Structure formats: C-alpha cells, structure tokens
Simulated scan of single mutants.
Amino acid sequence: MSFKQILVQAGVDKGAERRAQIAADLASRFEADLSGVFLSPAAPSVYLGAGMEAAPPAAVLKDLEDAHTRTVLANAKAARTTLERAAAGTSVDWREIEGGAPNNLVEAARTADLLIMPGPPENTREGVFAPADAVALSVGGPVIAVPDTSTATRVGRNVLIAWNGSRESARALRDALPLLTRAEQVSAVIVDHPAAARDGEQALEQFLRRHGCRSVNVQRLPEGGRPPSEVILQHAAHAAGADLIVMGLYGHSRIREFILGGVSREMLDDSPIPLLLSH
C-alpha cells in the first residue's frame, strides 16, 4: 500500500510554502507523482456592478476586471514557483481551476491518493480556500489539513492516532496506513470518556503491528473533566511529539458539531499540528 499521486493546494498565503515542502517531501519518500492545483478566484461581484444603484461605466469595469486578472495570473505564477522550488527539480503536474467552491477542489482530488490543503482559519487568508472539513467529507480519501499555526515542513515520521473505535476513526486509520507503516514512531490515544472504545488498546496495537508499524504505543488517557480534544492535543505535543494527527471526521452530524461543539470541530479549530482527516 502506497501513495502514487499526491495533490497539494498551492497558493500565495503564508502557509503555501510549508504545504509545498510537506507535499514535496512525501512525494519523494513515496516516489509518487506530485501535482499542484491553484484555485483562481472569480472577479468580485462589485466589479460587475452588483448591489450598486448605478453600474460603473464600462471602461471602469474593464479596468477593474483587467487588474483582477493580472493579480490572479501573478499569484498563480508565484504559487507554481513556490511548489517547483520545494520539489527541487522533480517534475510537477500543474493545474489552475477557476472558482473556489469546495466541489472544485474535491473533483481535482478524487483521482489523487492524498490531498494536502490549508486548515483553518480560512478567513485570515488571501486567495481561495474551501473549508478542509467540507472537502474531507466529500473527497472519498485522506486529506492532510495544515493549519496556519503549523511550522511543519514534513509530516509522517511521528504519527499520533486519535482513536475512539468509530467507523470514521477506522476509515482514517486505514487511509493513513501508507504513512503509518513507514513512520518511525506510531502512537495512539484513546480518551477515556463514555463514548470511548472499550478494551480497544490491544486490538488497535495488534492491527498496527500486523501491518508492520514500528515502535507502536497505544494509551488510554483519562478525560479528567477536560474536552477530549484538549487531552489529545496536549498528549500529541508533549508526550508523543507528533508531527501528524490521524483522526476520523464528524462521528456526529456536522451541523450538531457546528452548533454544540465536538471533538472534530475543536481539533480543526485548535490544533497547531497537521491533521490527516478522513470520513
């Protein structure tokens, strides 16, 4: 089991270079093809006179549209340069797609083995970014979301699995196997709260060892009145020293987690460590 096609969302935001480095490193380690996709934003509706009592003169609109086009072209060129520089001479397949709706990125990623894209928060960035959870729910494969707060330039050498025995958790585990079997250290944590998997430590450890994972460590940790996400993130950063967290996405409905909160939502919002997401 391996990754043969790795796709990274390129851009000019502050996390673009780190995503490019992570993607290039993984492509090199797996001897995989590397592809970059740049989502070109459509011209803002104000350029077309939307919402205005009187539309601007045609000449003004054309100047605005031309300026927008020049900016998009310049950003696409800069994004491609960043990715190719990270790839260090390795051939990169390049695509530019107009529009920033999640479906545009999902469609591009469905024929890749792994997608690397920005994590939250999207509202602080320049460019076009579909929410990582929306993409991961639809793409049908693993997504590595790299948060703005991450300083990682490579992932997958020290991996932590957030395990609760759910279908989503099992899907993420299997989707991450190419990384887990090559990792130097694989840890897993079960947060001991009412929804936790019962007696899951031994079964999970056996599964990982059967697949050839090295240096496996599975622990059950007490909730201690804290949110499970806090327990996981503290363990990942301090005890495990993880560079990647593997987790299933939205065991409850996405709407319920958005309104009431939940482990998926809290991990997406709070983790400074890249997340491998799967649903």
Rank of each mutant, 00 (worst) to 15 (best):
A55D: 09
P121C: 06
S253V: 05
L180F: 05
D13T: 02
F258C: 01
I232F: 03
R70W: 00
N104Q: 08
G156L: 13
V139I: 03
A132N: 15
E257G: 08
E17Y: 01
S40L: 03
I190D: 04
H68C: 11
A145S: 11
G241N: 15
G100W: 02
P178R: 05
E65N: 15
D199Y: 05
I273H: 10
M1C: 06
D25K: 06
G140A: 07
L64F: 14
A136E: 09
I259T: 06
K62D: 15
E205H: 01
P41A: 02
T71A: 07
P227T: 13
G49K: 08
R214M: 12
G224S: 08
A78M: 11
P147A: 07
G36L: 02
E266G: 02
V8G: 04
A203F: 07
N103L: 10
A32D: 14
A130N: 04
A196C: 03
Q5I: 00
V146N: 04
T181Y: 09
L275D: 07
Y47L: 11
V159Y: 07
V128F: 02
D93P: 00
V72N: 10
A136M: 10
V139W: 00
L260N: 04
M247E: 13
V186Y: 14
F3I: 14
N217G: 01
A76L: 11
R167Q: 14
Y250W: 06
A162T: 02
H238R: 05
V143Q: 03
K14D: 11
A101R: 15
H252E: 11
P228Q: 14
R167N: 10
R265E: 15
